[in-house]
Simulated scan of single mutants.
Amino acid sequence: MSFKPKSASIVFYVADIARTEAFYNDTFNLGLMRMEGADPFWLQGRLESGLDLIFFEMEGRRGNTPAVVFDVTEGGIDDIVANLAEKGITIVTPVSEAPGGWSADFLDPDGFGLGLWQSGELPRSLK
Rank of each mutant, 00 (worst) to 15 (best):
L53G: 10
I89P: 00
E57A: 14
K127P: 08
L116P: 03
A67Q: 13
L107Y: 05
L122N: 06
T27K: 11
F28K: 09
G60L: 09
S2Q: 13
F106Y: 12
T73M: 06
M35I: 12
F55C: 08
L126N: 08
T73H: 01
D79N: 05
I10N: 06
V14Q: 02
F56G: 12
V14E: 06
E121V: 13
D105N: 08
E121R: 07
R46N: 03
E57K: 14
P109C: 12
R19C: 03
E86N: 13
M33V: 15
N29S: 13
L47D: 09
A98P: 01
V92I: 13
S49P: 02
G100I: 04
R46H: 04
V92R: 15
G88L: 04
Y13C: 09
R34M: 12
L116M: 09
S119T: 14
N29P: 03
E36P: 15
R124N: 05
F23Q: 05
F12S: 15
A38T: 07
G88C: 05
G113P: 10
E97C: 04
G63F: 07
E21K: 05
G60K: 08
D39N: 08
L114S: 06
E48S: 10
L47K: 01
V92Y: 10
R46Y: 04
F70I: 14
G120R: 03
I10V: 11
I89Y: 00
K6D: 07
T65A: 15
A18H: 08
G75D: 07
F56D: 13
D26E: 15
W117I: 04
S9C: 01
M1S: 11
D79A: 00
Y13E: 11
I54P: 06
V69E: 15
G50Q: 04
S96Q: 12
T90P: 01
G111C: 12
T20D: 06
N64V: 11
I77M: 02
P109H: 14
E36G: 13
S2C: 03
T90S: 06
S9K: 08
L107W: 04
F3Q: 06
M58H: 14
V69F: 10
E21D: 05
G120F: 00
F56W: 13
T93Q: 12
S96L: 07
P94S: 13
L116E: 10
F70R: 10
L43Y: 02
R19E: 09
T93P: 01
V14H: 01
M1K: 05
V92K: 14
V72E: 12
M33W: 10
R19F: 00
P40F: 09
L53S: 10
I80E: 01
V72I: 15
L126K: 07
T90D: 04
D52S: 08
K127R: 06
A18E: 11
G115C: 11
D71N: 11
G45I: 01
F41G: 03
V14K: 02
M33R: 15
W117K: 07
G75V: 10
L84A: 00
P123K: 00
A22E: 09
S103H: 14
E36V: 13
V11E: 13
A104E: 10
R61D: 12
D16K: 03
V81P: 00
A67M: 14
R61N: 14
L126I: 07
V95K: 09
A85D: 07
L84S: 00
L51P: 02
Y24V: 15
